[in-house]
Nucleic acid binder design. Sequence first.
DNA 1: CACCTGAATAACGAGTTAGTTATAGAGATA
DNA 2: TATCTCTATAACTAACTCGTTATTCAGGTG
Lengths: 102, 102
Amino acid sequence: MTDPALERALKALASARRLQILEWLKDPVGHFPPQEHGDPIEHGACNMYITDKLGVSQPAASRHMKVLLDAGLVIATPRAGYVYYRRNESAIDRLKEDVADV
Amino acid sequence: MTDPALERALKALASARRLQILEWLKDPVGHFPPQEHGDPIEHGACNMYITDKLGVSQPAASRHMKVLLDAGLVIATPRAGYVYYRRNESAIDRLKEDVADV
DNA sequence: CACCTGAATAACGAGTTAGTTATAGAGATA
DNA sequence: TATCTCTATAACTAACTCGTTATTCAGGTG
């Protein structure tokens, strides 16, 4: 019947906070301070900056990132004690195709 | 920031039941029994048939339809004591465009 | 007008989400 | 090894979702 992965991805999207995060991750350099360790283009934005910008507690931000991660919409790269997040464009494209069939 | 209408539409979509309903409404004639009063093409499917096919209680089905209606994704037509539902294709298309920008 | 039927609402319970603070865990550095 | 910092998890609360049954509302029919 309906793909459970699609439902999970839609639930992940159906949040202003998480839509905002994905929007920021389109352009990490433009939306976050310069970061020393991870390349913002290759590995994405540092989780600390995302947390700060979200304006919620660190655990709340952590859970939002986990929802996006579990839905496959972002990719996490741990590096030098930090975690960097970037968009999973192929998964996002797949979701867009599925929505286009609605 | 993020459009509240987009969030509402995504929340409406993020349900296997409601995705299923929208799928059925693509082809009312193919998915529901013939109905005497409302033209299935013009006005959509009779709410009773949707309720039956969903396999949940009448109030549960009623709430699902209300979520879709409040999100603007379907159009309701009361007629001869029944309510007929059809897809709001222009709203659905708008949603698809918004998702394409994610 | 009275009745009948379909749809909507009320009221409840279980499960989930989203926030909090506090704590544990893991990795890098000194 | 010891420490320090960032991330993840635990525990709790408030609010929302989704199902139920019971009831009310409203239109159409006799």
